[in-house]
Amino acid sequence: MREIVLDTETTGFDPEQGDRIVEIGAVELWNHVATGQTFHKYINPERGMPQEAFEVHGLGDDFLRDKPVFAQIADEFLTFVGDAKIVIHNAAFDMKFLNAELGWLKKPQLPWEQAVDTLAIARAKFPGSPASLDALCRRFAIDNSSRTLHGALLDSEILAEVYLELIGGKQPDFALSTDTSGAAAGQSDNWRPRPRPTPLPPRITEKEKAAHAAFVDALGENALWSRL
């Protein structure tokens, strides 16, 4: 299974108000393991970089002036993503910008159902707790000390680690899926373990059985366990 963990940096919050993407960073996962394949582009937003955005990203007009515009990297980006699931923290924000940029170019847009929102996963898993990327790094003891400024590629690499923890650790399928087809050798994607041919012997001792029976008797005949 191929997944793309992605982050963008922008000049602001709303593409309909003229804000643009200035950086895209993405890393490839295969069966929940990073392959080392990445996509990283700085992008000339064709507008001035607001001071507040510069303070967050550290990307100024001089740095971005000679970078390609989105139209020049759009096809390469779409090819890299393909039909893989796109893992994003606060997916609504990044998908809004990506589809705005693609729409202005009359390019195919990314289906919303292609996105996996780690912010929604974190809020469902830890209701009421902080769910920012920094907060999740603290929760899972992931080193983000190099994240002094927001950078798309670094953030996507950190998010990949957070995502794997959110879905159960770095090997959520216990390495059963080891070949490039997404399933272990000789197994289909819907493989399930079979029952043991010989059941494991009970670990409870006769003494423990007797103690439990005495405990239930002491509860009286109206106790739930007695009636069942």
Rank of each mutant, 00 (worst) to 15 (best):
E101W: 00
G82E: 00
P127F: 01
M95W: 13
P45N: 05
E101A: 06
D117Q: 14
M49L: 15
N99R: 11
A53L: 14
V56N: 02
K106R: 15
D61T: 03
L78A: 05
A53C: 14
V116A: 07
L119V: 05
E113K: 12
D117N: 12
W112C: 07
A100F: 14
A115E: 01
H57M: 02
A84S: 04
P68E: 06
I73Q: 04
D66W: 07
W104S: 15
Q109V: 14
M95I: 15
L59P: 00
I86A: 06
E52K: 11
A100N: 13
A124P: 10
E101Y: 03
F70N: 07
P50L: 03
W104T: 14
D66S: 08
V87R: 02
D62A: 13
K96H: 14
F80K: 07
G103H: 02
L98N: 05
L110D: 12
R65P: 06
A124Q: 15
L78R: 10
R123M: 06
P127S: 11
R65C: 09
A124I: 13
G58Q: 04
K106E: 15
V81F: 02
F126Y: 15
F70P: 09
V69R: 07
H89L: 10
M49A: 10
G48N: 11
P50C: 03
V116S: 05
G48P: 01
D94Y: 02
K106P: 06
R123Y: 11
V56D: 04
M49E: 13
L105T: 10
D75Y: 15
A120V: 13
G82C: 00
L119E: 02
V81W: 02
P111M: 13
D94A: 10
K125A: 15
K85S: 08
A120C: 07
A122Y: 01
D94F: 05
Q114L: 03
A92I: 11
L105M: 06
G82R: 03
F80L: 09
V81G: 02
F80Q: 06
E52P: 08
V69T: 11
V69Y: 01
D62Y: 10
H89Y: 11
R47M: 05
E52N: 12
D75R: 12
E76P: 09
P108N: 14
N90G: 03
